[in-house]
Design a protein around this nucleic acid. Structure first.
Lengths: 352, 352
DNA sequence: AGGCAAGTCGGACACGTGTCCCCGTCAAGG
DNA sequence: CCTTGACGGGGACACGTGTCCGACTTGCCT
C-alpha cells in the first residue's frame, strides 16, 4: 500500500545551500533575502520567510565571522562561581552585555588553568576578556601582558594593583573607614578583627582603611585593634566567625566592636556571641562586608558595606565596550568604586 | 641616527599565514607542526614552538569548525541567575562540562527572548542545549520541538512534565513526604504551609507529596493542612515568610509544624515566630527546602531537603553527552532524582 | 662530484557565507 | 512582433584552516 501523501522527508539543513534547495530557490537569492537586500519580489521573500519558520534554519555564525563579521562574544574569567557577590557581578555583567548584543563565554580561571582558558577564548576570537575576582598575581599578569600585545581589550574587576591592568574595583579601604567612623561615633574605641588579616597589599584594601581610620581618629593601631585569627583555621567562613567569636568571649580585654571580613564571618560571629549569652548590639557591635541578602535575615540585621555592584559592572562594561574597535591604550585605566555604609541593627552605642 | 637594533615590529598575527611569515616558514609546515604531524626536523618544531610562546598565536576556532571540527560548545539556558540553587547547578554543570572538554555558553531564557536565545545558540552550532529552571510552558515546548527536528540534543533540569522533553528533576514530592514523615514521627498532626501553593501541576511537585503523605498517614488534608498564602503578596521570600509567620501566630488554630516552600521563606518564618516570642522547636517545628548554606547559619539550624545537586547534574551531563553523536531519540528520557531529608534543630517533638 | 633521501615549499581544495557580476527568463508595454 | 525592465540563477571570490601532492632545496654518504 503506497502512502498517498508522503510525510515531509527528514531533510538535514546545515547550510544556506541545503536551505535554498529546500526552498527551491538559488542560494544567492536566499542569501539576499536573509540579508535584506532590495530588488526582490514580495512573493519570494514570503517564500523564504515561511521556510525559515518551518525549518528553524540559522546561518552558521562561524562562517559569518570568517567573512569578517564580529564575533560579539566576550570571555569572562571567574575566580569562583560559588560566592554570592561574585555570582551577582557575573549575573549583572551577563545581562548588560546581552543588552548590548554580546554573548558571554564563562570559564573558571583556577590556578594553573589560566593559560588554557585565555587561549581558548582567544581561539574563539572573543572581542574582550573580563576577569572577575582575585587571582594568582603572576599568572594573571602574564595573561594580561599577552592580551595587551595581542590587542585584545580586557578589564579586571576587583583585583586591584595589577601591573598594566585596566581595573575597576571597590574601595574597600574607604568602606572600612566608613564602618569605623560609624562605630567611633557610637563611642567605640576598641576593635576586634574577624578574618581581616594583616599586611595591606594595596591602598584600597580593608586593612589599609582600618589603619587610616585609626590615624584619623587618633588611635594607636596596636592597642585599639585585636585579632585572634591565628587561633583558628579558616575553612568555612560561618564556622570560622563563630569560632573567633567564642575565643573573643573568653578574651581578657574584649573589644566593644567587631569587624567581619565578610558577611558570612560576621553572621558566624553573631551566632557565636549569642550562644555565649551576649546581646547584640547591647553588649557589643558587629559589622559585616558585602551587603549580601543574609545581612537582612539575621536578628539583629547586620551593619555592612555595600559594594555598589551595579555601578561597578556598569563602569566595567562601559570601559570594555569603549575599547573594542580601537587600538590598545598605552596607559591602563584604573577606576575605583566608592563603597556605601549600610547601617543595620547590629551596631549601637557602646555600653557605659 | 639609525636604530642599531630594531625593536620587534608590532606585527598583528591573525592567521596561520601571518604566523608562518613571522616564523619564516611555509604556512603548511607550520600547520603540520601545530597538528603534530610526523616528518619534521626537531629544529623546525622548536622554532615554531618558540614563536608560539612569543606571540601567543591561536588558530581560529571558527575556521576549524568550518573544516569539520566539532565546536565543543554547550548552550545553557538559565531561568534565572539569582537564586542560589540555580547558580549552584550552573556552577557544577560548567565544571563537569569543562572537565569533559566542553565550553559553556550561558544565557538567561526570560519570557519572550527564548526564541532568540535558542537561535543564537544554534547559529553558533552548539552541540547541545541545557535548560535549568522552570519556564513558560508553551515557549519552552516550542523550542524543544525545534531542537528535536533539528537533531540538537537537549536536557531540561527541574522543569518536570514537559512534552517531548528529556528531563532530570528532583522528586520534590518524595522530599515533602519525607519531611512530613519526620514530623509525623515527632507527633505532629497539623501543618501550616508557607508559600506552598495549591494545585499540583505534576506528580513530583511539593503539593502532590503533601497530599500523598496525608493519605498514607490517614490524615484529612483539609483539616490537617492550613495555608494563609492568600493574605500576603510574595515579593521578597524572606519578608514573605516573616509575614506569613506573623499571621499564623494570631491564627486561632495554629498548626504545630510549618512547611516552607524554600529555605528563604523558612528563615523568614523563623524570624517571624521568634519575634513573636515563640521558641523553635519548643513551640513549633519548621522546615525549609533546598538545603542552602543559610540553613546552617540560623539558630536553630533548619531541617530541610537536599536537592542532591551533584547527582542531578551528573545525570544531566551524562544524559546530554551520551546523545551527542547519535540520532535523535524517539522517546524522551525522564529521570527523577531522589531528595534527601536533612534534619536540623528546627524540628522537634510536639509539645504535650 | 654525483646520488639520494629527508625536509620544506607552495599550490590546490573544501568547509559556509555574503557579495559581485553576468546571463537567462518572463511579463508588460509599444 | 520586438524592446525593455524587473527579477532570479548561477558562477566566482575571499575569509582561515588542515591536508594532499608534486616540486624544490638541503645535507649527507658514497
Amino acid at each position: 500500500m503506497p502512502t498517498p501523501l508522503k510525510p515531509k522527508p527528514p531533510v538535514v539543513i546545515r547550510s544556506t545551500a541545503d536551505f535554498a534547495r529546500y526552498v527551491g530557490l538559488a542560494r544567492t537569492t536566499v542569501s539576499r533575502v536573509l540579508n535584506g537586500q532590495p530588488g526582490l519580489k514580495p512573493k519570494t521573500i514570503d517564500q523564504v520567510q515561511r521556510a525559515l519558520a518551518e525549518t528553524g534554519f540559522t546561518p552558521n555564525a562561524h562562517a559569518l565571522h570568517l567573512k569578517g563579521k564580529r564575533t560579539s562574544m566576550i570571555g569572562i574569567c571567574m575566580e569562583d562561581l560559588a560566592t554570592p557577590p561574585a555570582v551577582r557581578k557575573l549575573s549583572i555583567l551577563q545581562h548588560v552585555l546581552r543588552t548590548r548584543g554580546f554573548s558571554s563565554l564563562i570559564e573558571v580561571f583556577s590556578p594553573g588553568t589560566g593559560r588554557d582558558v585565555v587561549r581558548h577564548f582567544l581561539s574563539l576570537r572573543v572581542e574582550a576578556i573580563v576577569f572577575i575576582g582575585h587571582f594568582h598575581r603572576e599568572e594573571i599578569e602574564a595573561r594580561l601582558a599577552e592580551l595587551t600585545t595581542l590587542g585584545t581589550p580586557h578589564v579586571v574587576i576587583d583585583h586591584f594593583g595589577l601591573k598594566g591592568a585596566n581595573t575597576v574595583s571597590l574601595d574597600r579601604a574607604a568602606g572600612m573607614e566608613a564602618v569605623i567612623g560609624h562605630l567611633y561615633d557610637l563611642g567605640h574605641r576598641t576593635f576586634g578583627l574577624l578574618g581581616v588579616t594583616k599586611g595591606p597589599t594595596s591602598r584600597i584594601d580593608r586593612m589599609t582603611g582600618i589603619q587610616a581610620a585609626m590615624r584619623s581618629h587618633g588611635l594607636e593601631f596596636d592597642t585599639a585593634v585585636t585579632s585572634l585569627d591565628h587561633l583558628h583555621e579558616r575553612r568555612n567562613d560561618f564556622d570560622y566567625g563563630r569560632a573567633l567569636a567564642t575565643s573573643f568571649v573568653r578574651h581578657p580585654q574584649r573589644p566593644t566592636a567587631f569587624l567581619g571580613y565578610n558577611d558570612e564571618i560576621a553572621v558566624g560571629a553573631l551566632r557565636g556571641f549569642q550562644e555565649a549569652g551576649l546581646k547584640v548590639p547591647r553588649d557589643l557591635s558587629l559589622t559585616g562586608f558585602n551587603n549580601q541578602d543574609i545581612c537582612h535575615m539575621t536578628w539583629p540585621t547586620l551593619t555592612t558595606v555595600d559594594q555598589n555592584i551595579e555601578t561597578t559592572i556598569d563602569e566595567a562594561a562601559e570601559l570594555i565596550l569603549s575599547q573594542l574597535g580601537k587600538p590598545v591604550r598605552p596607559k591602563p585605566i584604573v577606576r575605583t568604586i566608592p563603597a556605601k555604609l549600610i547601617i543595620g541593627e547590629s551596631t549601637g552605642p557602646v555600653r557605659v
